[in-house]
Nucleic acid binder design. Structure first.
Length: 568
RNA sequence: CGGGGUGUAGCGCAGUCUGGUAGCGCACCUGCCUUGGGCGCAGGUGGUCGCAGGUUCGAAUCCUGUCACCCCGACCA
């Protein structure tokens, strides 16, 4: 491609509203343009990258035995009502009516549509297992779109759905997809981790996420330094650590007139935050309230809490009025001593002795409180987010927290959708059974942003070879002035193109400064500079994007081909 | 949705407090010049100042309303 004929619009200045580096670079390099909040046009250069990602995903899915389909993004509401998600999915679901006032949605994911298709056409165990996937635009009315294509209202997703006779076969395909995903992200060339995850709105039994590691990631991951354990903090577990110390101190009431938060109480009393205990009051499954006890320095994990049999799902905090009625105290002064509602303690909170907690009396806390002596021995559970330094749940090593961008998610759905939508097949014995399902998603457009987050420097994007929109850029110096340079550049360009290399020729006649700046910004992996100086010695200059120094090579297409072969 | 902020040329911004002929840099166009890291000179295109209403002789500027966008919190590929 000749740059003089290409739609390349780069900018030196960073758009004011782009926060993260990938968004800034995608705008500056002319990959995308914004249409509205969370809506982006892919320009020619960006689309090439998107299609590269798509191609890798498609190849690996096909290789893994999945079959590509394409379903309509517009879905009649009835299907979603049948699964119960029309109500449950909430405001994020884009809904509309057609001219006949029929309700439709724009698909944010397609379990219902695929299951509907499958229940009509899959009647026999002979047709199982099957794994159907598509690569298609998904629609979500995001609460807050941000970071460019990282969190958009429309995004390109690969979604796959598998159907199985039994759980064992679902497990087999789940592992198969896990390996396919591993191949995809390895080929793309990013540093990624597979982590245990919460299933969220998709539902189901077991799931894992694939994360690209990046400081700007929206997710926190807990990774063990002594084993392969890794989990999203939403789902990360830890094990109870250390035995409770002896109760030594006497129970004593202290005045804390304005100190509501544990931080303030700890500061007032001059004690570590970890020696305080707080209560969080939530709605209980029986319709009443339940108190959750946590160490002052820990944070409640609502996903874990709502799985506890005493806690209502979805997790809902009690109102201030409900708290006053149950405790006779303002929120901020609650404690387990004398509490009259059921109480569950996090393992770490239950391991405290001589701790400080609210006195259930506005303006007062207790110090020297102890379980068993001052408050009943509580049932314990894992209720909190893990913190850096917690022991890994497998007993090997400690957890550290890192940030990641979720680019893939695989689920064992079980029978959630097949049951709700009455899908059955006949097994070998002629008996009707409900198939097991799995589903597997990849955020194709998000990958582009995630890769840039990981692969950039001060000059711009540094594409991994497999995603680069073009592999080689030819930069002639003094194009208009030197017939020798012009001729050599044209010849090299033609020869590389003939050899099947995706090559850009910068024939815009720019001075070297802006020409090099653009080449760096758009991140082309291999740059060939042709100038009179080099040609005098029959040499081109070769520079790998990101390399410190250029090298001189023979002024022949063959020499270039050898270079890029070695580098690839 | 709650909290904070911004809307002036394609991009980055000044001007708004204190009303009086709409500006700067970059980009873009023309010509000359220049060619190894975002040259130089000269000339030029482009904005009903987010939108609507109001106050005023006069509004980018003051008032009211409205819309859009961005940032911080609960969601997810």
């Amino acid at each position: 491609m000749r740059l003089s004929k290409y739609f390349l619009v780069t900018t030196k200045e960073t758009p004011a509203d782009a926060e993260v580096v990938s968004h800034q670079l995608m705008l500056r390099a002319g990959l995308i343009r914004k249409l509205g909040a969370g809506l982006y046009t892919w320009l020619p250069l960006g689309l090439r990258v998107l299609q590269k990602v798509e191609a890798v995903v498609r190849e690996e899915m096909n290789r893994a035995g999945a079959l590509e389909v394409l379903v309509p993004p517009q879905v009649p509401a009835e299907l979603w009502q049948e699964s119960g998600r029309y109500e449950k999915y909430g405001a994020e679901l884009l809904r509309f009516k057609d001219r006949h006032q029929r309700d439709f949605i724009l698909g944010p994911t397609h379990e219902e549509v695929i299951t509907d298709m499958a229940r009509r056409d899959i009647r026999s165990y002979r047709q199982l297992p099957v794994n159907l996937y598509q690569i298609q635009t998904k629609f979500r009315d995001e609460i807050r779109p941000r970071f460019g294509v990282m969190r958009a209202r429309e995004f390109l997703m690969k979604d796959a759905y598998s159907f199985h006779l039994d759980e064992a076969d679902l497990m087999r395909e789940y592992r198969n997809m896990r390996e396919a995903y591993r191949s995809i992200f390895t080929r793309i060339g990013v540093d990624f981790r597979i982590v245990k995850a919460d299933s969220g709105a998709i539902g189901g039994d077991r799931s894992e996420e694939f994360h690209v590691l990046a400081a700007s990631g929206e997710d926190l991951l807990a990774v063990s330094d002594g084993s392969g354990y890794a989990a999203n903090v939403e789902a990360a577990e830890t094990r109870p650590q250390g035995a409770r110390g002896a109760a030594v101190a006497a129970l004593e009431k202290v005045s804390t007139p304005t100190q509501k938060a544990c931080e303030d109480v700890a500061a007032l009393l001059g004690i570590p935050l970890a020696a305080t205990l707080k209560l969080i009051v939530a709605k209980g499954r029986d319709g009443g309230l339940v108190a959750l006890a946590l160490r002052g320095d820990h944070v409640l994990n609502a996903v874990k809490a709502e799985k506890h049999p005493l806690v209502a799902a979805p997790f809902t905090l009690a109102s201030d009025a409900e708290i006053r009625a149950a405790f006779g105290s303002e929120p901020g002064f609650l404690g387990p001593v004398g509490a009259k509602i059921p109480l569950v303690a996090d393992h770490a909170a239950a391991a405290l002795s001589d701790f400080v907690c609210g006195a259930n009396e506005t303006g007062f806390h207790l110090r020297g409180a102890n379980w068993g002596r001052d408050a009943a021995e509580p049932p314990t559970a894992d209720l909190r987010n893990v913190v850096s330094g917690d022991p890994s749940p497998d007993g090997q090593g400690k957890l550290t927290l890192v940030r990641g961008i979720e680019v893939g998610h695989i689920f064992q759905l079980g029978r959630k959708y097949s049951e709700a939508m009455h899908m059955t097949v006949l097994d070998e014995a002629g008996k009707e059974i409900v198939p097991e399902m799995g589903c597997y998603g990849i955020g194709v457009s998000r990958i582009v942003a995630a890769v840039i987050e990981q692969c950039n420097d001060a000059a711009g994007i540094v594409w991994p070879e497999p995603l680069a929109p073009f592999r080689v850029i030819v930069c002639p110096i003094g194009l208009e002035k030197s017939p020798a340079v012009k001729q050599a550049a044209e010849k090299l360009y033609e020869e590389l193109a003939a050899a099947g290399v995706e090559v850009l020729l910068d024939d815009r006649g720019l001075r070297p400064g802006p020409m090099f700046a653009d080449a760096d910004l758009i991140g082309i992996p291999h740059r060939i500079v042709i100038g009179d100086k080099g040609l005098a010695n029959a040499q081109f200059e070769y520079k790998r994007r990101g390399a410190a120094e250029p090298a001189m090579i023979a002024a022949m297409a063959q020499a270039v081909l050898e270079r890029i072969k070695i580098a690839a």
